[in-house]
Amino acid sequence: MKRHFDADLEDLRGRLLRMGGLCEEMIHAAVKLVVDRDEGLLSPVQEWESQVNRLHLEIDDVCLKLIALHQPAAGDLRLIAAALKINSDLERVGDQAVNIAETGVFLCREPRVKLGDIPRMVEVAAGMLKDALDSFARGDVELAREVIRRDDEEDRLKSQTFNELVHMMQRDSSSIARGMDAILIARNLERIADHATNIAEDVVFMVLGKDIRHPAEQARGEPRPSGA
């Protein structure tokens, strides 16, 4: 039986994917600003952030209304619970992209800095976010698990980038300001990958009803506050 509620859930999914799409655009534009030293890209990134923030508020509102009016259960409940969390993660992704763009504006005014593995980090983080959103759209648990596995690669690239930039700053103290900015950008990208990982974990919960977060604590069998 098709329910009106299904149309509401479809609308919720659509809004989240639209928000995710904006976040992807923001990441690509922010990184292009850094690489091409194009300060003009800050303005569209800020405009997209404003749209993302509006969607953040709207989606929370929609979720609360759906819970209050429909008292969802089972798969419907898991979808809405996942949507609330994904909504927060995407809003944070938007913030990270703005941080990259703003840091990039400073970098544009400095001599060109060696970006090390940052281009590769962009590829990994943006790819993870895209696939996390695809896994949400399709309910694809395998793709979600694949996203989670890729987070280690991003962490490795971040450490490598940090090391290279620290060496650069040690060798040339005049590069410290731009070196620190590049480290901040690497850190922003690593956080984007973390948010993509969170989204993928929420997709696994949404589809399977299985909470795969914090495996170490779960393996130790520490009781949860709810006693559930």
């Binding site: 329910r3 509620f5 969802p72 259960a73 089972a74 798969g75 419907d76 409940l77 009803g209 299985k210």
Partner: peptide
């Protein structure tokens, strides 16, 4: 109510 094992239960508790 969060992860029913049987599709018929899922359909019932979600009003389908």
């Amino acid at each position: 109510f969060t992860k029913p094992a049987d599709k018929r239960t899922e359909d019932y508790v979600t009003g389908r």
